[in-house]
Nucleic acid binder design. Structure first.
Lengths: 410, 410
DNA sequence: AACGGATAGTTAAGAGGCTTTATAAAGTGT
DNA sequence: ACACTTTATAAAGCCTCTTAACTATCCGTT
């Protein structure tokens, strides 16, 4: 089900060498925050001065690197500054949620130019829905002054099982009639740009790792608890998908031997025990609709000493703590991030979970609350898109080196 | 705690190019089972005929590739056959067990020349113990006709927590007085060859993946149940260690909310509930010593209808099934291999576990019994050693393109 | 104000490695 | 015998990299 990427990026001859060194220089250029000089590239890449010179002039011809003119001297000849042209192209993120869909447009570094939240057009079928969303994104790009033909990559998230190789949303219980929807192809046709589809919790951990609570934690896990429950697993800085793209499907975790006999699929798994629906059942004041309405009251009642509320809260904290501890035991991350509607509405819960996990096992991993909240998957979308765009740019440089001086078309 | 390997294997100049192409040719040569010709290398590498010619002559000078003379014609000039010289060096495996230690000597392909089982000298301290084991390995190599100065790499396994970066056995509960033992350094001094230390369950899944039940399953998990309980996790063909080298520490998994309050560390975790000690407590006929004595009788009694035995067996099967299902949910492997003393003594158990897992969750992963049994970690040792040796050879070619024949240090 | 020294970048010359083309060796098949 | 195939080596040419020399500025000191 998974093809091994035997992508041999090794150079074989002088031509490949050139392509790789172009990539190397471009990589360094993209990593730099601001402007830089040839001398700095020489230092960073280890290449010789003349080589860097020709590589840079090549990159400037394509427009990926912008000349900024000379700067102030540092004791000798004035350096010629340049910078990575982050506006050489644009990327977009689409976080498709059950009720709201978040859109954003960013430059090649992933810096947002603009974003927007629109109601998910739930009454439409998948094709029409995605077409509508794509239309909204086109409008947003126009407003941001980002020409659509400069859209180089899109990252899209869906709340369900995703086969990211085929770009298909296999199943999304919270989206009406979504089963085997070829989301990537549909969006690519509507937008004319390559799209990567990914599960929303996976995107959340990518987002938190990039710009949120998990910065610097290359092996970490996001555990999402809301109506649904799921986890995103990052290993050595890369998402772990699993053989059937079902890694992190902790909704179906079994929470104890006592749950095996009693009609398991319905009542015994993690999601049916600790998801918002389960809580609502045990808390009469829960109007099924918006958890922001009743979840805080449940936790306040518990803190105030309400027996019934306390029991519900204690039980859910325990269940989550068991999941956290057990995922931690298997994966051994340096950090676990907790997020989702439940944690968003109940600040004390993270603390409770942390305390119980410590009782279960003197655990070396940190446990923190999501820093980006509902924005996390969208950030992940932009990261995925920016990485994809940059990879395509680099790869393009390598391929298009057939003629000695590939002049920028035009 | 983990250094990212930013190993830039990219060529920068012509010299590096040569090194990489040498590696490429050698890689293909090592993968071939038997003999091959220059023409086949041209086909496999994509390099031109003259280049392959010079690379091959270089490899023959070092002795890594052996000339076999010309073969029969296939309609044209007779090809000149050659083969990878698997005896250019040797590797060894050391599986240090609580009572027995397995040793093996193999060629660079990992094919065993000889092996031996010796009693682990448990009365000695770590240093003396390892010295004794190293002595036994030296003797074994001599018998096999493998000169010790040709030992290029060693893979060693220990039953406990291992910091493989530092080569230290952090803690091994089943080895007397083993805590923070610098096993790698000790063995390297005693053997004069580079040693890789790894946890034994991790080695087991490597072994099963290489030559056992997990062949072809690049993402899979070994779950070991004996006196201790542990798991080895393979992701995309590579071991997953976790941030603190504690991935797969499923001994401490919490098996249900009811176990949190009752003195957890002692009685509520997976190992204390389902390890052999736990079983022995519930089965009076268990003489604490050898599980081969009483475990089969327990399972026979259960099958025969003994209520008490059945209850014990059912409970342990359930607990293991929960662990299997939950590890499966987090990692999403294509296969889970079950092994260890418990499964070795009770063939029906794998079947029982499989049935319960299917009841918990219609799971897409296979569940099978270990094919290599107690030999699995030793196979893993040889794989680790062979890979290390081959990598060193390739790397050596790249670096030491100065002296033609790099003789192993004496 | 002039000069030495430092920094940044370019041009020129040289070396290494790969590829294409040509050549040689050794068969097979008609 | 002759044409053609397969395999391997030799010669010539091309590309890219590097070192060395050179240009372009600027700073600080005398």
């Amino acid at each position: 089900m998974r093809s091994r990427p035997v992508a041999d990026v090794r150079a074989r001859n002088a031509g490949h060498l050139r392509g790789l060194n172009l990539e190397t220089v471009l990589s360094v250029a993209m990593q730099r925050e601001g402007s830089f000089t040839r001398a700095e590239l020489i230092e960073a890449t280890g290449l010789s001065a003349p080589t860097v010179g020709t590589l840079v002039s090549h990159l400037m011809q394509t427009g990926i690197v912008k000349d900024l003119g000379t700067g102030p001297s540092r004791g000798g000849r004035r350096p010629s500054f340049m910078e990575f042209n982050a506006r050489h192209g644009y990327v977009a993120g689409i976080d498709l949620g059950p009720t709201r869909t978040r859109l954003a447009v960013a430059d090649l570094r992933g810096e947002r130019l603009t974003d927007r939240i629109i109601p998910t057009p739930v009454r439409l079928g998948p094709a029409a829905l995605l077409s509508r969303v794509a239309g909204a994104l086109r409008a947003l790009m126009e407003e941001a002054g980002a020409p659509i033909d400069r859209l180089l990559a899109v990252g899209a998230g869906a709340p369900g099982a995703v086969d990211r190789e085929k770009g298909i949303v296999t199943f999304a219980p919270n989206l009406h009639d979504w089963s085997h929807v070829p989301m990537r192809d549909m969006l690519e046709r509507a937008l004319g740009a390559p799209v990567q589809v990914e599960n929303d919790v996976n995107l959340a951990i990518l987002g938190e790792h990039w710009r949120g609570a998990a910065r610097g934690h290359d092996t970490c896990v996001f555990i999402f608890v809301g109506t649904g429950i799921g986890a995103g697993v990052l290993i050595d800085g890369e998402l772990h998908h699993g053989h059937h793209f079902m890694a992190g499907e902790i909704a179906v975790m079994c929470m104890g031997p006592q749950f095996i006999d009693v009609d398991f699929g319905e009542r015994g798994c993690f999601e049916t025990l600790a998801g918002l629906h389960a809580l609502a059942e045990h808390w009469p004041e829960a109007s099924q609709a918006d958890p922001a309405g009743w979840v805080p009251s449940l936790f306040e009642a518990s803190l105030a000493g309400d027996r019934r509320a306390k029991k519900v809260v204690d039980e859910v904290a325990r269940l989550i703590a068991i999941a956290v501890a057990n995922v931690g035991a298997v994966v051994d991350p340096s950090l676990i991030v907790l997020g989702g509607a439940l944690f968003a509405q109940a600040e004390s819960l993270v603390h409770d979970v942390r305390k119980i996990v410590e009782r279960i096992r003197r655990s070396p991993m940190e446990i923190v609350s999501s820093a980006l909240g509902k924005e996390a998957p969208l950030s992940g979308c932009l990261l995925v898109a920016a990485n994809d765009a940059r990879q395509r740019l680099r790869h393009g440089l390598r391929e298009a080196r057939v003629s000695p001086i590939p002049v920028a078309a035009g």
